[in-house]
Design a protein around this nucleic acid. Structure first.
Lengths: 216, 216
DNA sequence: CAGCATCCGCTTTGATACTG
DNA sequence: CAGTATCAAAGCGGATGCTG
């Protein structure tokens, strides 16, 4: 990217991370940890492969990430954020929070990746009954199944399946997220094709309460 | 900007504010309040005027700012952030903070605007002697003189001059900011051509202590 | 297959000139 | 003052090919 040539912190930051795709690349590394080129690309549907190679080189030069040849059992290149790169997390979180209301509308073409949703739910949901026994929720939304576990007052999310989840939800991202974040009611979600196994009432323990307002 | 088409908060935010120049336009409105087209352009040296017009239109459509015809005494169009636009402030602050270390090197071509520096100093400096009498500092760096006032434990900055400042500093942005943020010592600043009137020792009350580390 | 590099058509940006 | 109009240059997206 061409520099803004302004003696200003924001302009200097954008000189490094203001290019198209750049912050999304950093989001991938932040969410997934050290990753292979192919896996990063999979989290960035639509990016041109040469552009990804370019950006990774630039970010390496800027000290935001490192490239490392992993030893034989893995035998591939791993890209990983440096401490300096990880310091972008608060900025990423604030931007994500600002973008949340815009997720009320999901365009039909929008790609969905499970790890995007998993991290979002981990931040947005809270366990309001910390003394109750562990609650397990399995979601089938994007490319991989997600497990949400509530217990001891915290919410954990991971990619994978659970042994005996209290509730399983299968369907489109928008109604499922809308229901879990408390923006719509159960009836509306099922009307949108969401399939539910187990007792959805047990989810009241962790469901959001629509503090996320609608987009303008 | 072409949409990323990803069902993810960060991607949705960047669909709106991820374009080149966009966040800097919002910074101008955030720092200056309701502004005229010409004044915004003055805070964005290098932007093409048609591009500014485009961005303002898009941001208005996205509900980030409004355009208003001011009544006769002013008789011009004023651009102003909406509440939704002002909610970007935490994200702007985090990005600015991340960019701060990059200000250690100032390219000779870098443009300097007083209101950028004023707001930065207001955030970065602290009054460590809240019970002492008011301290006034006048800076001549960018396009306009700046006044920094410390008192009652707070730091205020404004564009303009002071009646009888305790200290006046005249010179280049990098050494003056480096000295005030505690990154370099007085001798280094004067060696870089900074002219000082008054007793610089009184500034120890508000000077930073180099918590801002160097860029990688 | 993983990790790129090259080529090409299209879109966005930058610089400048001009206007109600 | 607040923009439009024009056009060259740079950046991007998509397809494809190359190398270990």
């Amino acid at each position: 990217m061409r520099s803004y040539e302004q003696y200003c912190g924001l302009a200097k930051a954008l000189d490094v991370v203001g290019d198209r795709w750049t912050l999304l690349i950093i989001r991938e590394l932040e969410l997934r940890g050290p990753s292979r080129y192919t896996d990063i690309r999979n989290g960035l549907p639509g990016i041109a492969t040469n552009l990804l190679a370019d950006r990774l080189r630039e970010l390496e030069r800027a000290g935001v990430l490192t490239r490392e040849e992993a030893p034989p059992p893995i035998a591939t290149t791993l890209f990983e954020l440096t401490p300096r790169g990880r310091q972008l997390r608060p900025a990423l979180e604030e931007l994500t929070l600002w973008g949340l209301p815009l997720m009320a509308e999901q365009a039909p073409e929008d790609a969905v990746r499970s790890h995007w949703l998993a991290s979002l739910l981990e931040v947005m949901l809270t366990d309001r009954q910390p003394d109750a026994s562990r609650l397990t929720l399995e979601l089938h939304i994007g490319d991989e199944p997600i497990v949400i576990e509530a217990g001891d007052g915290t919410i954990r999310s991971r990619i994978g399946t659970a042994e005996d989840p209290a509730v399983t939800m299968i369907g489109q991202a928008r109604p499922i997220m809308g229901f879990l974040l408390g923006r719509i009611e159960l009836a509306e979600a099922t009307a949108a094709g969401v399939e539910i196994r187990g007792d959805p009432a047990t989810l009241d323990r962790i469901r959001g309460d629509a503090t996320v307002t609608a987009a303008p």
